[in-house]
Amino acid sequence: MLTLECPCCGVKAEETELQAGGEAHLKRYGPGSTDEEFDGYMFSRKNPKGVHFERWRHAYGCGKWFLAARCTATLEVFGTYPAQSKEPPADLQAKIRAKRPNWEGYK
């Protein structure tokens, strides 16, 4: 069972206090988007064996959503950061690259 540190309140919460929210950094496509764009937004999800960015909500705590980078194979957690991020922070990306030299980036 995972533990993740909520960047909003600093609590090191365990998985039972959290709600998982799936892949992070999706771009919303609304009216006017093509079928392909909408399909990608709505249905296509990454399922990497390795580095993954996810949404989590500190549901039994401060109630805030945050984002986490972890390895789906080893469950190593590289870091958590605010949900109000367009992309993973540069220092987190650097840390991941140092630990996983073959990582192809978050996009």
């Binding site: 709600q19 919303r28 909500r57 959503w65 949900a83 109000q84």
Partner: peptide, 13 residues
């Protein structure tokens, strides 16, 4: 309520 907070925190912050 969670759905509202999700959009407010993660999309239209």
């Amino acid at each position: 309520h969670g759905w509202m907070e999700d959009w407010l925190q993660c999309e239209w912050w």
